[in-house]
């Protein structure tokens, strides 16, 4: 697999284990009310699992297996920036969740938005019919 696929997959596994651990803590304390510690920060569980794990894994594998142009993956120079925006956005979003800073969450979510735009820009030309 390409180097950047490996980077994305390893990062996604980290989020799978961390976000999964938080979810397990939430489930283990089910019934103790929304004020208990893990439930108070459930937004982080949701974002870690949906963006940190699922989206990051799919993007890494997509970069690897989407059709190429002969042997080239066009716009692949965007992948490092995409990774920085995605993971920077997730970290700032987490900071916002744990410090209850809506402004920081907003900045983090803007990072996720920019990453999504960048990945779509990378992948768009690679979604093509055979031989094109």
């Amino acid at each position: 697999m390409p180097r950047w696929t490996a980077v994305y997959v390893v990062s996604s596994f980290v989020y799978l284990l961390l976000g999964g651990a938080w979810g397990a803590w939430m489930l283990a304390t089910k019934g103790q009310g929304a004020g208990s510690v893990p439930w108070a920060y459930r937004a982080w569980h949701v974002e870690a699992m949906l963006f940190g794990w699922l989206t990051q894994f799919i993007w890494g594998i997509g970069f690897w297996i989407f059709p190429r142009f002969w042997t080239a993956r066009p716009r692949s120079e965007l992948l490092p920036w995409n990774w920085v925006l995605l993971n920077g956005g997730l970290l700032l979003g987490a900071w916002g969740v744990f410090t209850r800073s809506l402004g920081m969450r907003f900045v983090g979510h803007l990072g996720l938005l920019a990453a999504a735009v960048l990945f779509a820009h990378h992948a768009w030309p690679r979604i093509k019919p055979p031989g094109a």
Partner: peptide
């Protein structure tokens, strides 16, 4: 709930460990 949560996380860990061995550039 506790058994369920631990079991699911152990399942995630087992998957991650096995697949991490197969990440090859």
């Amino acid at each position: 709930f506790v058994v369920s949560s631990v079991a699911q996380w152990v399942g995630l860990l087992a998957f991650v460990v096995n697949m991490s061995l197969r990440i090859k550039v």
